[in-house]
Amino acid sequence: MHAQRHQTTRAGQPLPALPYNPALDGLRAVAILLVILSHAHAPLFDGAFYGVDLFFVLSGYLITTLLLQEWQQSGRLDYWRFYRRRLWRLMPALVLFLLAYCIFAPLLWPGMTDMYTDALVSLLYLADYGIAFFDSPDTLLHMWSLSVEEHFYLVWPPLLVLLARVTQPGKLWRPMLALFLLAWAWRVLWVVQGQQFYEIFFRFDTRATGLLAGGLLATLLRERPAWFEALRQRLVHFMWLVLAVPLLMAQAWDDMNAMVWGMTVVECATVVVMLALLERRGAIYEMLSAPALVTLGRLSYGIYLWHYPVVRWLRADLPWPAVVALGLAISTLLAALSYYGLERWALRRRDAAAAPRSRPRKAEGELHLCTRSQG
């Protein structure tokens, strides 16, 4: 996966690829470990659902960076190329997982009657609103975050182009910041109006802040306004914000504080960590570049797909430490089989379809996002 060719425009001109940063894979590994701890019902990790917010910030940053690169180089976006690449990256692994689920779910849960409906809702990327308002899917509850990201992929490219067209050069960060604040206010509005926690938690329109925070970070790193550069010079002082995240693990499901400020703290802390990782030096970069974490991060999309049914089945009879250990091991094995057996083939097909006729240069690295944002 790390020998990606340059993406190309319709005219065959190569687009720059993002340089590979192993520490970002390490951050994905931390995110997937938090998600598994949450779904295993590990004590002291009730708030580990915040792992998904790490994924959202990463996805928003990487996708927006690629879109801005293309826009600034060619003055346009090739929407078809973008959506085709998303399809080739995400859909093969998802289809394989859902086929396996439809085959084995009746054996694992004999009384289940809605597995095919759950699979269809997941395949159509409707799980976020399906869960929020119709309690479907149930045994594929984790599909909601994939739906959130897919909706972002659909609406963000044309919206980003619109913002770029109507904004002065170097000032795109202003409407991006406004969008982030509006998205936060929109979520808080539903809290104030008394809507149920799960009706807010799962929806794209109320969970867009993480994706927009990542997009804002990508924009600031390209435009580099003076105030942002001044803050970057004082980044060490903002690392204290990261220490607040472990304290949020005590926030349980139904705690509306998570909606009002908890998610915002995690999103801002993730931005701070990413700024440190993008420097490619320092203790945090070295820690998250550990080979074991990088390997988990590379497989994080597949692990995320497979982990929930596995963990749900294991936790019925096993204590939580065994659920975490076995759930991670089994999910990683299945993700590796999916990746090396199917996904790498799909990535080759994707890149071959986009390659120019002349021999392409090798890129320094490849974007592969976890959900996921992955690829």
Rank of each mutant, 00 (worst) to 15 (best):
Q193G: 02
Q195G: 00
G297V: 01
W71G: 05
R165L: 15
T139A: 11
G111D: 12
L318C: 07
L96P: 02
M115F: 15
D205R: 02
L241H: 04
F201G: 03
G341R: 09
Y301W: 08
E364A: 15
R187G: 06
R10N: 11
Q374T: 05
A127G: 02
G214C: 06
L27Q: 06
L299V: 06
A352W: 10
A269Q: 08
V311M: 04
L293V: 00
V35W: 04
A269C: 08
V166L: 13
M256N: 07
G47Y: 08
V273R: 07
A164D: 03
P225S: 12
P356E: 03
L181H: 00
L247T: 03
D138I: 03
R76E: 14
M256A: 06
E223T: 03
F204R: 00
M115D: 00
G262T: 08
Q193Y: 11
D351H: 05
L342S: 06
A335Y: 05
R89G: 14
G365H: 10
C102F: 01
R344E: 14
G327Y: 08
K171I: 00
L34V: 07
S145I: 10
L68R: 14
S373R: 09
S331T: 08
A100H: 01
L369E: 10
F197L: 03
R357Q: 13
A48Q: 03
W306V: 11
Q72N: 15
M274N: 10
L241N: 04
D135M: 06
E70G: 06
G47H: 10
L163A: 14
Q193W: 13
L221E: 14
I103Q: 04
H6I: 01
L248H: 07
L296E: 03
H307S: 12
F134E: 04
W190V: 00
D25S: 15
M239P: 00
L120R: 02
G170R: 11
V191M: 08
W80D: 08
A329S: 13
R349M: 11
M287E: 01
A292P: 00
L333S: 10
L216R: 10
V271S: 01
L318P: 09
G130D: 11
G12R: 06
M176F: 09
H307E: 05
A290G: 01
D138P: 01
L326H: 02
P158N: 07
H142R: 02
V155M: 13
W261S: 12
T8M: 07
T64S: 14
P356I: 06
L189T: 07
L24W: 09
E279R: 15
